[in-house]
Amino acid sequence: MMGRGLLGIEDLDRDDIELILDTAQHMKEVGEREVKKVPTLRGRTIINLFFESSTRTRTSFEIAGKRLSADVVNFSPSSSSLSKSESILDTAKTLDAMDPDAVVVRHQVAGVPKRIADVLDAPVINAGDGAHEHPTQALLDLMTVVENKGRVDGLTVTIVGDIAHSRVARSNVYAFTKMGAEVRVAGPPTMMPVEVESLGVKAFTSLREALDGADVVMALRIQRERLSGSMLPSVREYNATFGIDRAKMRFAKDDAIVMHPGPVNRGVELSHDLTDDRPSVILDQVRNGVAMRMAVLYLLAGRKRSRNEEAS
């Protein structure tokens, strides 16, 4: 349940997700006005606590908070000075003493947002933790699919790439299966987690089979450092086998859309022309990201544990 904070899609039920999607749709309208700002979170403070750098996600949260009139403070400690988990919690407690109304956390290690949430009064929003979850990304992806397809229920969604190391894949698997889509994952065997099908998805090592009849094709970003190691022989081979281009899209449905969480390695996960033009909806995803984060902040910011407990 979405009580206090948003740590992962795994914790949400379908009603929660529908409320968030509905709220985000209204927030999108605010972003289309000439005055793109509402006074809803006036006087509230949101801290972006990013241990792992991510200009795009941080900017998206920052714009979202500012459009709701919250004061947004960015705090990006260098990970070198914070290698022990104790000092991470100390940092979090220090920030909590400044009485924020929400803390947005990104960390390279899975589970850190949860540990921080356990010691904080303020609600914590997970902006990506290791290979665990990236819930706002999955929510904005759902929103983008609903906008383009009118629904999620009954669609076939194929996620392609490094499934094992991707928090985007994991959150999207939860999100799309909870909303009634058939989810397929495809990638090299070295990038496929063991027992992935226990999450309710179908796993493929043949891209052609995975794309057959797909309504949505979601390519994941390949981390360059993984390409040089033992996971993959070469970038070129990855692109030949799992890179999405117009020729491979012919296996999917005629009206299938292409998604990518960004930033795209052009010519690796997606061909150049697919990165820029329909049927890819990458910029829709970015646009919806701001609306989605506004929705999450609206629903969560200021709902503190201590006050909640007093009220109940």
Partner: peptide, 10 residues
Amino acid sequence: SSGARPKLRR
């Protein structure tokens, strides 16, 4: 500051 947020309308 606590409790559910009202649902938005169009």
